[in-house]
Design a protein around this nucleic acid. Structure first.
Length: 825
DNA sequence: AGACGCTGACTTTTT
DNA sequence: GTCAGCGTCT
């Protein structure tokens, strides 16, 4: 191992950096210092929650650069764009110059996508390959299942994709998959023996489309390095220093790639916390941490156990929770912070009251302890839980923001628009082509498409090539003319690529396709939102090209270019580059941090973040732990680690809430308190808070006819039945996926015939809207004062109803009451 | 081709 | 509660 020396000609920078660096190192404790400055050779940092792991990583990178290592030689891999951006920003601040922009810092996916963009041709892909998000992947799988005439119920895209994804993350190709005895057994057992064949066709189809899915970005990167020694050498030489954040979340492919990359210099530093491993469902394996120590002779291991985030009470509870798991790397977090408040465990009657309780408590804390909105986070296990909080926060006039959920780029209108751009950049992209060929409507209908598709399949041609030769396909008349026009238009767009940037092309697309105009003419509420979204998309493309132009003023060697050529600018702002970037973006990446809002997100999304006050909701059996993850010890332990992550997000105050009943799937459902709550150390818990809202009970939102009790869990000492089930599952595999109750919750009896449908426009005796709503059939939209799913008070009825309101989309702006479901409220 | 009416699937978690 | 998607009718 040779000590890195200052690169020739860079000494002035080195001297300039040296001083602030030294100051910064002083802020580290001994362990952190050790980890940050031991820059040569393999290093594993086992970092507990809140132990300053990001600080160490950034200091380490800055330190490397201070020692004269060029930014271009440093590769730092993270799991979220946010973590990457944050790291970059911090380093920039520490260095006080713009050297950091030359660092390779990004998610595995985005860094590899960037590399593959230069190398994909070696693997037979176009360099402007498309990146398929999961929606695209599912759509491909769906059409394959249809073509193979398999049972679509049995081969749901979600399930099949999950299976393929797991295989890919474990470096198992389609052929190997079909030969693997164990995998085949599993597929037989679940009655899905054709998955191997689907996998093969899926891989072929993606290749034909010139597309890589998320897993391919890793897999193809591995293939590239593994197949082409000269490529491997190039990147080994380039990335002399490799750093990996959240190492416990890496899967087999990621492990192999980083191993290859680091093999030459062995300057690899991984940071992880086995206690926070929560992504095994997507192939992550803690094994990688253990294996790491075996792979290199002289691995240095540094443990960071001092927590700088949370109060003593919170740390104690967290430690107790994680100790229930077997096979952890022994680690004891400690803190010299104050004892703090006890952890509050609160039970409420309903999910709605859980939301109400939290919103009331936030208001109280703001008044009493002068907290701000941005000090609060509400965390939950599943996205669906956000609604109850949302309603109550809105009612309480508290500003909030929900993170996660449907991404901006997943909205239909945005996807449609982007589909055009995708076809322009890569005509092989069949998914995108199918999406836009008749949108907006241009007279290329189902029949024509079927014919074209069949010919494409028969001759193993791409759909686009068949379309180009449409006159030979037997299509004629209006259809042929429509296709001819479509081709002319698309070829015009394609021709723009040589001299126009992504924004200019996107603008032209909007203008010539009539996409923007069509949305503009749609004056309904949703239409307006769609129009705004498309505008927003165009804005963001503009923003991106501007930003790229600035960045491209610096070349690969790090020197600022004087007379930058138009060509360089053009290369940095191409449509293809833009498309590859955005597919890997999530909503969390372009939000403005500074807003004073309460944050709502899943626990997964909260990893790596911290908040003064945290509410964890729905701490109930079947939700947390998830009913789908209690069958094996491994699954349950992952849920427990997730619980650990939730707890350790809190700095000062922590609430764990659970509701006796909640809406789920439109049903009222009763859940027991989570088993995790029973594992908490009593002395650190305060259960004295009542979730009741005083006057609330009785006339609350939900009435129970028959009370609880029927069915439910037989828990208590040793929760026997579940262990039996788990044992059976281990022995015989998971139970057949037939029609069984997906959740073990008790469905509460209702007072009236449930789910009875009532035609509103054929009113029955008991279905008369009262004057309070003023709702009549065929009413003008302008008078509509409520949204979808509005509760309508019914005269003479013992209960309220929920009506679905549809807008007439053509002609006059009229609404129609579609149907209503009878439901107890 | 498009509007309409209705069914059923969804609920782990993310790049 | 919500929504995509299917079949049917115009």
């Amino acid at each position: 191992m040779c000590e890195p020396t200052a690169v020739q000609g860079r000494l002035p920078i080195f001297l300039y950096l040296a001083r602030p660096m030294q100051d910064y190192l002083k802020g580290l404790n001994d362990r952190q210092y050790e980890a940050a400055t031991h820059i040569n050779g393999p290093l594993m940092i086992v970092a507990g929650a809140g132990s300053g792991k990001t600080k160490v990583l950034t200091t380490r990178i800055a330190h490397l650069m201070a020692k004269g290592v060029d930014a271009f030689n440093i590769l730092a891999l993270t799991f979220t764009n946010k973590a990457a951006a944050e790291m970059k920003e911090r380093i920039e601040k520490m260095l006080g110059n713009n050297e950091a922009r030359n660092l390779y810092i990004g998610t595995f996916h985005s860094v590899f996508a960037r590399i593959l963009r230069g190398e994909a041709h070696r693997l037979g892909y176009p360099n402007s390959f498309t990146i398929y998000d999961s929606d695209d992947s599912k759509s491909v799988i769906k059409s394959i299942v249809k073509e193979m005439e398999l049972d679509e119920k049995q081969y749901k895209p979600n399930v099949v994709l999950g299976r393929i994804s797991q295989a890919k993350s474990s470096l198992i190709g389609p052929l190997q998959y079909q030969e693997d005895y164990y995998l085949q057994q599993e597929d037989q057992r679940t009655n899905r023996p054709a998955i191997g064949k689907i996998y093969k066709r899926y891989a072929d189809q993606c290749f034909k489309n010139g597309a890589m899915d998320f897993d391919d970005l890793l897999l193809k990167m591995y293939e590239l390095l593994n197949t082409f020694p000269e490529v491997l050498l190039k990147y080994q030489h380039k990335f002399r220093y490799v750093l990996i954040d959240e190492y416990q979340d890496t899967n087999a492919v990621q492990y192999q790639i980083t191993k290859l990359l680091a093999a030459a210099h062995e300057n690899i530093c991984v940071v992880g916390d086995d206690a926070q491993s929560i992504y095994s469902f997507r192939g992550a394996t803690i094994e990688n941490i253990l294996q790491f120590q075996k792979d290199y002779d002289d691995v240095k291991v540094v443990k960071l156990e001092q927590n700088y985030r949370s109060s003593k009470n919170i740390i104690e509870v967290a430690n107790t929770v994680i100790r229930q798991n077997k096979g952890q790397i022994p680690k004891d977090l400690w803190t010299d912070k104050d004892q703090g408040d006890k952890i509050k465990v609160v039970a409420t009657m309903t999910d709605n009251e859980e939301g109400k309780y939290v919103s009331t408590m936030i208001q109280e804390l703001k008044l009493r302890d002068h907290y701000h909105n941005h000090d609060f986070a509400i965390l939950y296990r599943t996205n669906a839980q956000s609604r109850a909080y949302e309603e109550n926060l809105r009612r309480g006039g508290i500003a909030y923001k929900i993170y996660g959920g449907l991404s901006f780029y997943q909205r239909k209108e945005v996807k449609d628009y982007i589909a055009y751009l995708r076809v322009i950049a890569n005509t092989r992209d069949e998914e995108a082509l199918k999406r836009i060929i008749n949108y907006p409507v241009r007279g290329i209908g189902k029949t024509s498409m079927e014919r074209l598709q069949t010919i494409a399949n028969q001759h193993n041609m791409t759909l686009w090539d068949v379309i180009l030769r449409a006159p030979e396909t037997g299509l004629k008349g209006a259809a042929l003319e429509a296709i001819r026009k479509f081709i002319t238009m698309m070829q015009y767009f394609q021709s723009l690529q040589t001299h126009k940037n992504a924004y200019e092309i996107a603008f032209e697309v909007g203008k010539h396709t009539g996409l923007v105009k069509e949305l503009f003419n749609d004056k309904t509420v949703e239409g307006l939102a769609r129009y705004e979204n498309v505008q927003e998309l165009l804005n963001s493309i503009k923003e991106w090209t501007d930003q790229q132009e600035n960045l491209s003023q610096i070349d690969e060697e790090g020197t600022v270019q004087e007379g930058i050529t138009d060509q360089t600018l053009q290369n940095a702002t191409t449509l293809g580059l833009y498309l590859q970037q955005i597919t890997l973006l999530t909503d969390a990446d372009n939000d403005k941090e500074d807003a004073d809002v309460v944050k709502l997100m899943t626990i997964h999304a909260a990893k790596g973040l911290e908040f003064p006050v945290v509410f964890v909701g729905g701490v109930e059996e079947t939700i947390f732990p998830s009913g789908l993850s209690i069958n094996t010890r491994e699954e349950l332990e992952e849920e427990r680690r997730l619980f650990y992550v939730a707890i350790t997000r809190a700095k000062e105050k922590l609430w764990l809430t659970h509701a006796n009943s909640r809406y789920r799937f439109g049903n009222v459902v009763a859940n027991d308190a989570s088993r995790f709550l029973e594992e908490l150390p009593k002395d650190y818990i305060d259960r004295s808070f009542s979730g009741g809202t005083g006057s609330g009970f009785g006339r609350g939102d939900q009435h129970f006819g028959g009370g609880f009790g029927a069915g439910g869990f037989s828990r208590g000492s040793g929760f026997g039945s579940q262990n039996d089930a788990a044992a059976a599952a281990r022995k015989y595999g998971p139970p057949p996926a037939k029609k069984q109750q997906p959740y073990k919750s008790t469905v509460l009896p209702t007072q009236a015939p449930p789910q009875q449908k009532v035609q509103v426009h054929v009113p029955k005796g008991d279905f008369v809207p009262s004057d309070t709503t003023g709702l009549t059939e065929g009413m003008e939209v302008e008078h509509l004062k409520f949204g979808f799913g509005t509760v309508i008070k019914m005269e003479g009825a013992a209960h309220n109803r929920i009506a679905t309101v549809d807008f007439k989309t053509n002609g006059e702006k009229k609404i129609m009451l579609n149907y209503a479901k009878l439901r107890i409220l």
